[in-house]
Computed example of a mutant assay.
Amino acid sequence: MKIGIMGCGVISNQYIKDIQRLYKNLEIYMVADIRKEIAEQTARENQIPFWGMPEQMLDSSDVELVVNLTPPTLHTEMNRKILLAGKHVYCEKPFAISLEEALEIQNLAKQQGLAIGCAPDTFLGSSISTCKKLIEDGWIGSPLYVCANMLNSGVETWHPRPEPFYEKGGGPLYDMGPYYFSALVTLFGPVKSVFASARKGFLERTIYTEERFGHKIAVNTPTHFAVIVEMEKGILANMNFSFDIFKSTMPLFEIYGTDGTMEVPNPNMAGGTPKIYRREQMLAECFGGADQREGKFSSLPELYQNIGVYVRGAGVQDMVCKLHRNEKEDAQLAVHVIDIITSILKSAETDMPQNLVTSCKERG
């Protein structure tokens, strides 16, 4: 399938490199950007035959699927234009800024008879797939609770243009929440309700990248969220998302079951080795000698092919494979994730728990 890359920002290099390396049935036929010279540079550096402005990509009869890598606030507008141009679309996260926008695009895709999907696709990788298999096989018994924490000091140390991360549609919830929520729903099914509090730790941030070193930017969105999530299956998750933490020893993602604990690899990555701590180890530590009181996790091998720890593009490949089987991806998971995010925001604003209005099918 001939695909186009819409938006030649920082993440486009990763998509292009990984798609060209891994998926030989996908041809990156064209790249587009509002800065035509950047599109041309990206095309020449990656041996892509065509480049141009976004409108030129939409007018191309050869491009069948567009990977939308434009800024988050433009996702809905561009997704709408891509679908109306008769092309399938795979969108970088977040799928939309509001649930209303997400549902609009989902319904438009159905009306047009087109497929639509959204990042992240890391839950398709070897690490989360292995964790799902281990849970289903009973390695930690029945899951009871989850503790997950995305805690860092923000993006201004590495991103040359971090302003959108501190505006509406930015912050740690929209930026990193999709990785954690997609993994959570993949492992345990839909979310039932959320309860949250939010804070803004700093009124302004300092950019540390070379080009704009020392430049100050305003913060116009919450940058720290404390969240309690109740799954439809009854599992409780305690989750924290923050751009205000310089160092933390909290677990990235742990699952606590009736027979043990699972340490899940970073949901931002496609690969990684899960770890298990079984109840029998606790009993041995209680009644055994000093050499048995170490409390160590046991690493388990990944049960699926690891194509790399930090990779992008599996979601595009997944969509195309479904299209070849006459199936259409409808972004059900992505819409549910936006429902989770916007419900958390509303809970933080109202100091009241929020029930979700969407659900989604569990993936096999």
Results as ranks from 00 to 15, higher is better:
residue 2 K to D: 13
residue 4 G to T: 09
residue 5 I to F: 07
residue 6 M to G: 00
residue 7 G to N: 05
residue 14 Q to H: 13
residue 19 I to H: 02
residue 20 Q to V: 04
residue 20 Q to M: 08
residue 25 N to M: 11
residue 29 Y to W: 11
residue 30 M to E: 06
residue 30 M to T: 04
residue 30 M to C: 09
residue 32 A to S: 15
residue 32 A to V: 14
residue 32 A to N: 11
residue 35 R to Y: 15
residue 41 Q to L: 14
residue 42 T to P: 07
residue 43 A to Y: 03
residue 49 P to L: 09
residue 51 W to D: 00
residue 51 W to K: 00
residue 58 L to G: 10
residue 61 S to I: 04
residue 63 V to M: 01
residue 64 E to Q: 14
residue 67 V to S: 03
residue 69 L to C: 08
residue 69 L to Y: 10
residue 73 T to L: 15
residue 75 H to P: 10
residue 76 T to E: 14
residue 83 L to W: 02
residue 85 A to H: 10
residue 85 A to N: 08
residue 93 K to H: 15
residue 96 A to Y: 06
residue 99 L to V: 04
residue 105 I to C: 01
residue 106 Q to C: 07
residue 107 N to F: 11
residue 109 A to W: 01
residue 110 K to H: 13
residue 114 L to I: 10
residue 115 A to F: 04
residue 115 A to P: 05
residue 116 I to W: 00
residue 118 C to M: 11
residue 118 C to H: 08
residue 118 C to W: 08
residue 119 A to I: 04
residue 119 A to T: 11
residue 120 P to Y: 04
residue 126 S to E: 07
residue 127 S to M: 03
residue 128 I to S: 01
residue 134 L to S: 10
residue 136 E to H: 13
residue 139 W to K: 11
residue 139 W to L: 14
residue 146 V to H: 02
residue 153 S to L: 08
residue 154 G to P: 02
residue 155 V to G: 01
residue 155 V to C: 08
residue 156 E to R: 06
residue 157 T to W: 15
residue 158 W to C: 07
residue 161 R to E: 13
residue 163 E to Q: 13
residue 168 K to C: 09
residue 170 G to L: 07
residue 174 Y to T: 02
residue 179 Y to G: 01
residue 181 F to A: 02
residue 182 S to I: 02
residue 183 A to F: 03
residue 187 L to P: 03
residue 189 G to D: 04
residue 192 K to A: 15
residue 195 F to W: 14
residue 197 S to D: 03
residue 198 A to M: 03
residue 200 K to G: 02
residue 206 T to G: 08
residue 214 G to S: 14
residue 216 K to W: 12
residue 220 N to D: 07
residue 223 T to P: 03
residue 225 F to P: 01
residue 232 E to S: 09
residue 232 E to P: 00
residue 242 S to E: 05
residue 243 F to N: 00
residue 249 T to N: 13
residue 252 L to F: 05
residue 265 P to V: 00
residue 265 P to M: 01
residue 266 N to Q: 05
residue 268 N to P: 04
residue 273 T to G: 00
residue 275 K to A: 12
residue 276 I to A: 06
residue 278 R to S: 13
residue 278 R to G: 06
residue 279 R to P: 02
residue 282 M to S: 15
residue 287 F to A: 11
residue 290 A to R: 13
residue 293 R to T: 12
residue 296 K to I: 14
residue 305 Q to T: 12
residue 307 I to H: 13
residue 307 I to A: 09
residue 308 G to Y: 08
residue 315 G to R: 01
residue 316 V to R: 04
residue 316 V to W: 04
residue 319 M to K: 00
residue 319 M to N: 01
residue 320 V to R: 02
residue 323 L to W: 09
residue 328 K to M: 15
residue 330 D to N: 12
residue 339 D to K: 00
residue 345 L to F: 10
residue 347 S to T: 06
residue 349 E to C: 10
residue 353 P to R: 05
residue 353 P to M: 08
residue 354 Q to C: 11
residue 355 N to P: 06
residue 355 N to Y: 15
residue 356 L to A: 04
residue 357 V to T: 14
residue 357 V to Y: 05
residue 360 C to M: 08
residue 362 E to S: 12
